[in-house]
């Protein structure tokens, strides 16, 4: 059973950008890709306690603002040192201008 949560309005996020979404004590990062697709991952870097939403989105990559750990935000894949643990990702859908994420 997916638990769909409304995270933000679709146009709250610029293209090729990210915002932070806090829910129930957890932090997520919601992305809008250059191709206008939406993705969601855990909001904190797997290397250190740093919010990814303060980082930079370039194409399909989110770069951590602190130590430049890079992840593919579509899959959560860690792209090399200093990060070696993948980010958890969450299903996303856009309905009626709202971004919904399924948090397990």
């Amino acid at each position: 059973m997916s638990n769909w949560i409304e995270a933000c309005a679709a146009d709250d996020i610029d293209e090729e950008d990210v915002i932070r979404f806090d829910h129930d004590g957890r932090t997520f990062a919601i992305y809008r890709s250059p191709d206008d697709e939406y993705f969601a991952t855990d909001g904190v870097c797997t290397h250190e306690q740093v919010h990814l939403a303060d980082g930079l989105v370039m194409d399909e990559i989110i770069e951590c603002p602190k130590h430049n750990g890079r992840f593919d935000y579509r899959t959560g894949e860690a792209k090399g040192a200093p990060v070696c643990v993948n980010l958890r990702t969450y299903p996303v859908k856009v309905e009626a201008g709202k971004v919904l994420i399924a948090i397990g």
Partner: peptide, 11 residues
């Protein structure tokens, strides 16, 4: 404060 400048420094 915090990571305020990080993104622009990356750019």
């Amino acid at each position: 404060a915090g990571m305020t400048v990080a993104r622009d420094i990356q750019l």
